[in-house]
Design a protein around this nucleic acid. Structure first.
Lengths: 195, 195
DNA sequence: TCCTACATGTAACGAGTTACATGATTTC
DNA sequence: GAAATCATGTAACTCGTTACATGTAGGA
């Protein structure tokens, strides 16, 4: 079996979940919703069909684990599956796109009044503050010194949200005080306008 | 005309481009590729059909501008189009997803050796450094003190890339020196492990 | 009894990419 | 004359969401 064919991103995310241990499609959805969601979401409509494809490709095996009348199929990653996962992880990324609808909306906001633009930035800030709170809740501080990838990425996520929040404050200040000397924007080295 | 129906995100991005002035489908693709691309890409396969839908909905009007034998249709945003764009911009975002394949790949890298994990992080850093260079090229420093949205977002993009680069250095240090006191991660307040 | 969580799945639709086809104009 | 750029478009495909259907188990 296992005619070698391209595995989709969702497929690789599923393999990634199963690399932590056997689980059901339902479990995978839970894991994705509480971990990769900010960087990569997945719906049941993708997960269940993809599980069948991965099994047909020999990358995972499913085992019936019904308890009483409640059905449950647990999937386990195979050696071929682990290899495919590793290959996917090591692959370089050709196209960088950090799709962010909120930022795109802001990008096209020049025809609005300053008041509306500022209100929009404040709205974005509030949304990201809520996101940061979610991440902080997930973050068990007892584990903050672990160097596991999920933990490092969690800290990445919190820093990223904080960065956006800081940028919002900076941008509002820029719009409100355009003639004042430009403060150093978050993340950037000091930027000084030239003649 | 103009039966009120939901406008897609690409449609709104097209309206956003046209809010800067009349242009062709080809022009729109150029603008997207040199501005919103990092946050929102669009292909001809989406742009041309969407232009027809927007025209049918009365949000834009197309005008033939062929020069010699070379065809060209320039589109202009209408009042209704501007209103639809404004409504879209002001809409709050229900679902925050900053899809980032590179980060997802890292997230699932725990089964690799430390050497492989570090190599992957260095790869990610190099990719983002290249991205930052692209942004710096776009950034005309003479305009750095302008408070137009595209300019503020450009500075956002540069800060964001720098943040990822800094995080990469921090993460490599964490993996290489797990027992050393944890340095403050980029963007975050100091995080201290608790008992 | 009712609600929540567990559990699996599909059909219809919309979003988005890729590859292709076509032809004119400009620049080297 | 060749290559790059301008310019428009479609067909086939994959990706991804939403809404629905179905039923079990456990706790309030």
């Amino acid at each position: 079996m296992a005619v070698q064919q391209k595995i989709s991103n969702v497929g690789c995310v599923i393999l990634g979940c199963l690399s932590k241990g056997p689980m059901s499609g339902y479990d995978i959805k839970q894991v994705v919703d509480t971990s990769t969601r900010f960087f990569f979401a997945a719906s049941y409509g993708q997960i269940y069909p993809e599980l069948k494809k991965l099994e047909a490709a020999g990358l995972i095996t499913g085992e019936g684990k019904a308890q009483g009348g409640r059905q449950r199929t647990e999937f386990t990653i195979t050696k071929a599956g682990t290899d495919a996962l590793t290959a996917w992880i090591l692959e370089p990324q050709n196209r960088i796109e950090m799709r962010d609808e909120g930022i795109v909306r802001l990008f096209f906001s020049d025809h609005l009044s300053d008041e509306q633009r500022i209100a929009k930035i404040e709205q974005l800030k509030a949304e990201r503050q809520a996101g940061l709170e979610t991440l902080k809740t997930i973050c068990d501080l007892n584990l903050v010194d672990e160097t596991s990838s999920p933990n490092l990425i969690l800290i990445y996520g919190m820093g990223l949200h904080q960065f956006v929040i800081d940028w919002c404050d900076w941008a509002v200040d820029r719009i409100e005080n355009p003639s004042k000397p430009m403060p150093t924007p978050p993340g950037n080295p000091p930027l000084t306008p030239q003649e």
